[in-house]
Design a protein around this nucleic acid. Structure first.
Lengths: 190, 190
DNA sequence: AAAGGCATTTGATCTACATCAAAAAGTTAT
DNA sequence: ATAACTTTTTGATGTAGATCAAATGCCTTT
């Protein structure tokens, strides 16, 4: 187990050493290439993933067959399809790597078991949800409801400066809900 | 304490009787008139509210001074400004009653204290966040990103059929991010 | 270096929805 | 009932950003 990752876990909320160990030893280390799918639409999500190095996109395919990105996650973040994970029902989204990545897979079974077993783990989990899910999704609602195309783009640049280098224009425009052509014009400054 | 409310609390996740009692006895019963503010922009959110009867809107005031609704909550739902509550920082939103309402206020201090004290309470709290926050906000992102004005309106009608009777057109249009005029035309079927 | 395959840019139109303005309908107070 | 609001509707016009189409630029592979 990488010390970076245990530190990352501990950074969320300090777990007792033995609980941390029990937790981390259930992680599965994945070293996987670009384009690989962590999750496919229609499957039940069975993991929370911690990205150690790399980048993924969340997307789904609309009625017209167009892929629409809903999220990106990069190194040192948790990623999962929370809705499918919680309800253990079919996911509407897929999750795919945009770069060769090193990822820890945390089984859903571990999360459930440790919640039952350890009070401290519940507190860790609450903190994790709060800081890695709420904070982000709240921002997302905000930018979708209140910002225009140009503002959404600049907002993303600020929040995640590396994305504009690492993610293609087409993938970014899909996430921002802007056509590729319009985003190209925005980026060139009109 | 109303048995309806304890049942509602128990419906989230079954709490041991003594924890439930400790929890419920901290609730403060509010019987307050239309237009009252549960929370004002700039203040720190100190409660989660359970609406027993009535209706509230969440909104903030934009740079041009226009009020923009972000959420409605009606009877038998939890409502709060989660971001302000969690970080105990100034809220950007206000929460105001749209109808005379009966509401239970759960102090943030209770939530924090019971989380520390009871494993079972943490499990209740996780369930509450999952079912009353995630599920809803996820839907919200979806409708904002992928639906057009007409679809957003019909989506709301389905999700909350009573709202179109109880909430003025202006307040609905603001929430849906549609101008009042356009919503009027949509509603009249063009 | 040439050829093929993507990703990005540029230009010309089109459209969903906003904005502005005013009339009509509904509500509340005198 | 009449006046004075407030909310909703209707009509005319404006615009951000989509869509369609074609050109350009950029990697690969040979």
């Amino acid at each position: 187990m990488d010390t970076d990752v245990t530190e990352f876990i501990q950074g969320v909320w300090e777990l007792p050493k033995e609980v941390l160990e029990e937790f981390c030893k259930s992680f599965q280390l994945l070293d996987i290439p670009k384009d690989y799918f962590l999750l496919r639409e229609g499957k039940v999500c069975k993991h929370i993933w911690v990205i150690h190095r790399g980048l993924v996109r969340h997307f789904y395919t609309d009625e017209k067959g167009k892929e629409r990105n809903t999220w990106f996650s990069a190194e040192y973040s948790f990623t999962s399809n929370v809705i499918s994970l919680l309800n253990q029902n079919a996911s509407r989204e897929s999750i795919q790597l945009l770069e060769d990545s090193i990822i820890y897979a945390i089984p859903q079974a571990t999360i459930t078991a440790l919640q039952q077993k350890h009070h401290s783990f519940c507190r860790w989990y609450i903190k994790m949800l709060e800081s890695f899910y709420f904070a982000q999704i709240d921002q997302r609602v905000d930018e979708l409801q209140f910002l225009n195309a140009t503002e959404r783009y600049h907002n993303l640049l600020e929040r995640a400066p590396t994305f504009s280098r690492r993610i293609s224009l087409g993938n970014i425009s899909s996430y921002l809900n802007i056509s590729q052509e319009t985003l190209s014009r925005i980026r060139s400054g009109k």
